[in-house]
Simulated scan of single mutants.
Amino acid sequence: MLTSERKALIQQILQRDGRVVAKALSQAWGVSEDTIRRDLRELASDGVLQRVHGGALPASPAIADFAQRERTGSAAKANLGRLGAGLIRPGQIVFLDGGTTHVHLARQLPRDLKATVVTHSPSIAVELAHHPTVDVEIVGGRLFKHSVVAMGSASAEAIARIRVDAYFMGVTGLHPDTGATTGDHEEAALKRLIARQAAETIVLATREKLGAASAYGILPLAGIATLVAEAGRDDDRLVPFRAAGLSIVTA
Rank of each mutant, 00 (worst) to 15 (best):
M1C: 14
A76S: 13
H120W: 06
G217L: 07
A229S: 08
A244Y: 09
V139Y: 02
Q92L: 10
I36D: 01
V249P: 00
K191Y: 07
A59G: 06
T100L: 07
V228Q: 00
I124F: 01
F95G: 05
I13N: 09
A198K: 03
L238T: 00
R19T: 11
R82D: 06
G141C: 01
G232Y: 12
G183N: 15
H104F: 13
A229D: 01
L105D: 05
Q12H: 13
P90S: 09
H131P: 05
A106I: 02
F144H: 14
A243P: 07
P61Y: 12
V164N: 04
S60A: 11
R233K: 15
L193S: 05
K77S: 04
L25P: 01
Q12A: 10
R82C: 10
Q92E: 15
F241P: 05
I218E: 05
L238M: 07
P220M: 08
R242T: 11
G173Y: 04
S155M: 15
G232K: 15
Q108Y: 15
A212Y: 04
I194W: 04
A76N: 09
D165F: 06
E42G: 08
P122V: 06
Q15V: 13
V126G: 01
I124A: 02
A198S: 12
R51V: 14
S32K: 02
V126K: 09
I224P: 02
H102P: 00
V117Q: 00
A199M: 09
A205C: 08
M1T: 13
G223K: 10
V228D: 02
T172P: 00
S4P: 04
L80N: 03
A129D: 13
D34S: 14
Q12P: 06
I224T: 07
S74K: 09
T101H: 06
M151N: 06
E187K: 02
V31S: 03
D39Y: 08
S121A: 15
A154Q: 12
S26D: 12
R163P: 01
V134P: 04
H146V: 05
G152W: 02
R19P: 05
L57W: 01
L204I: 07
H53M: 10
A150F: 10
A62N: 11
G152R: 02
R51L: 07
L14I: 14
V94C: 08
A213P: 05
A115Y: 03
A78L: 12
Q108C: 12
K114M: 12
V117W: 10
L227W: 03
V52C: 09
S4L: 14
A166F: 01
V149R: 01
V148A: 05
P176Q: 07
P132T: 10
H104A: 12
I159A: 00
V249M: 04
H146P: 05
E70C: 14
S247K: 15
A22F: 04
